[in-house]
Design a protein around this nucleic acid. Structure first.
Lengths: 346, 346
DNA sequence: TGAGTAAGAAAAAACGTTTAACAGGTTCGG
DNA sequence: CCGAACCTGTTAAACGTTTTTTCTTACTCA
């Protein structure tokens, strides 16, 4: 039973001596209400501390002014930064945000999706888990509200999206190392099954191949899924005969493992080994040496996501017609101290 | 106009050939419904992809099963970690989370509070901005739902809270430095007006005073509010004659500035200067040297917060009677490489 | 056999809004 | 001076649930 004790529109109406309909119109600025009456209503509402009941309002109007934010993994600083920015932009546009974390877990993602559907949020920003689950694209395409994929795409799901060019990201890392003279390089990545990792690999590998210095298979560390695995992989690379002069970690979790491994040896960065990764991190710039990274334009991604989604909410027709916008943003290189010329390592 | 196209309980009822009341009871497990009918209803709901309309439900039942999370500043990794943990615990308990960021801005905090009130969330976890605003405690104590302060207390507001012992945090830092032989130390902090900073200062200063090595006024850098100010303060300390052998930064924003400043000089950590701060950070352990910190038990804080708040939601009577629980958790020292014996610096 | 009872299902009211339809009064053109 | 148009406000319906109350049916037992 409710009994929240909060005043209803009814009591505001009684105090102002008008009907509830008039209160609604006066407070929302909809319909015609004379100026003096409007201020009378407003002050009545003010004095009662009236706060319109959002559930009642959205039950009637069909809009919640809430955005669902479904994040694959909140422990990832990149997503965290995205969340912070999206919340800010949404809030500025008058939308609240329900935050859901899937923790890279299919079951949780499914439950969260169901909840957002029940909640009738006006739109969903979706950063899907890597782990797929049966019926996922079906559920997603049956969603009745506008939705938008960020960072990761989903095979078979046609919808708006905002991503970055991951092939370019890999290539930027490669070209930087090539320009510094590196020819024998290592790479630590997750599963090549995953689009993002694969694209980064492709960009990186192709650039080296094109330069006539194909990457040796033994320096390709695949299937490192977390920091610990990356650390182990890094140790293998570091201990190998004729070890690489540079190592590329394809995301920031893995970079943490790589740096941890290097810290456990006496190997010096960048003199003896160069390190490069993707994603800026708050600490990358205060490290000694600073970490050279391929930046993802996080704020631009968030901006594009919110703008596109709100546009869909305002005008859903285009999407129904099967038109979708796929925004692809460009990463860029930020050179700091962790990469250096290869000559020094000789 | 709504027209979301989602099935209502009515259509489930029609398909199952029963009344809406029966559907409600069958799906919620409330009331008496025969077993065969229950499964018939469930499969009807399933086949239609029925998702109960949360607004309608909470309009009627008075409960939203949503928690409001009002954070002072989402760019702070400590709060971020807290948010991540609270979301996880709330989700496990069947609650969703509306995330609001005040960005240390009074106006935004006020607006967010109003929104959460309108939204009729079942409870609010409140991490208030440092900046106070007129009528704040009034607004907060008039809130009709259970609420709980985390990290920061508010003068004059009697409510449940979860905080850490900041005096102890300061003392732990001081005792660690004292044990290493440091007698000439510097401190970088925000405003002493703020309870947290003041307590940390007190604990730190008192421990040094008690050890017969009071902190020199010129080494007390107050009113450093952001990273840039901390960096400037750090440069002053580092350039001063007979500079400190150790510096304590009272939070992680300031530590970033301090480390940045040190990185701009040739001064070596910990040989020439020891560095200690509060809050663990993801990068603190992979830095070289690792950063010695006084840890806040973040997960324990989140756990206590969620548990207490959910308890209040389940049984609001005690709070109404004026009883409040004030949980104070203990920080602890985590020694890494950034602090060392003072002899080396002589 | 028939009244009493218990169980299961249905009907209807209520939650707090918004909004379409409507009503009363004033203004204005003809 | 009359009807139309307009302006401002009210009435009432509707949104999709949950829950209280009522109804039906079948069963029990004297």
């Amino acid at each position: 039973m409710a009994a929240t004790g909060l005043p209803t529109i009814r009591e505001v109406a009684r105090l102002a001596g008008v009907s509830v309909a008039t209160v609604s119109k006066a407070l929302n600025g909809s319909g015609k209400v004379s100026e003096p009456l409007k201020v009378r209503v407003q002050s009545a509402a003010e004095s009662l501390g009236y706060a319109p009941h959002a559930s009642a309002r959205s039950l009637r109007s069909g809009a919640t002014r809430i955005l669902g934010l479904l994040v694959a993994d909140l422990t990832n600083p990149f997503f965290l930064h995205l969340v912070e920015t999206i919340e800010r932009l949404a809030s500025a546009a008058g939308y609240s945000v329900i935050l859901c974390n899937s923790g890279e877990n299919a079951e949780r993602e499914k439950r969260n999706l169901q909840m957002l559907l029940s909640q009738r949020v006006d739109g969903i920003v979706l950063m899907p888990t890597r782990q797929n689950w049966p019926g996922r694209v079906g559920v997603l395409s049956n969603l009745t509200m506008p939705r938008l994929l960020v960072d990761r795409l989903l095979d078979g799901l046609e919808t708006d999206s905002v991503t970055i060019d991951n092939t370019l990201a890999g290539r930027l890392a490669a070209e930087h190392l090539l320009a510094l003279g590196h020819r024998r390089v290592g790479l630590i990545m997750g599963s090549p099954e995953h689009q993002i990792a694969r694209h980064r690999l492709d960009g990186f590998r192709d650039a080296f191949a094109a330069a006539g210095a194909p990457i040796e298979a033994r320096f390709l560390e695949k299937d490192a899924f977390d920091e610990a695995a990356a650390r182990a992989a890094a140790h293998r690379l570091l201990a190998s005969p004729e070890r690489p002069t540079a190592i590329f970690a394809t995301n920031n979790h893995l970079a943490l493992g790589l740096l941890g491994a290097i810290a456990e040896t006496a190997i010096e960065v960048p003199r003896e080994i160069s390190v490069i990764t993707i994603d800026d991190l708050p600490w990358a710039r205060i490290m000694r040496p600073g970490l050279t990274v391929v930046m993802q334009p996080t704020e631009a991604i968030a901006d594009a996501a919110v703008t596109t989604l709100l546009g869909r909410i305002a005008a859903p027709e285009a999407a129904e017609a099967g038109e979708h916008t796929a925004i692809v943003l460009k990463p860029y290189l930020l050179e700091r101290g962790s990469t250096g010329p290869v000559e020094a390592a000789a």
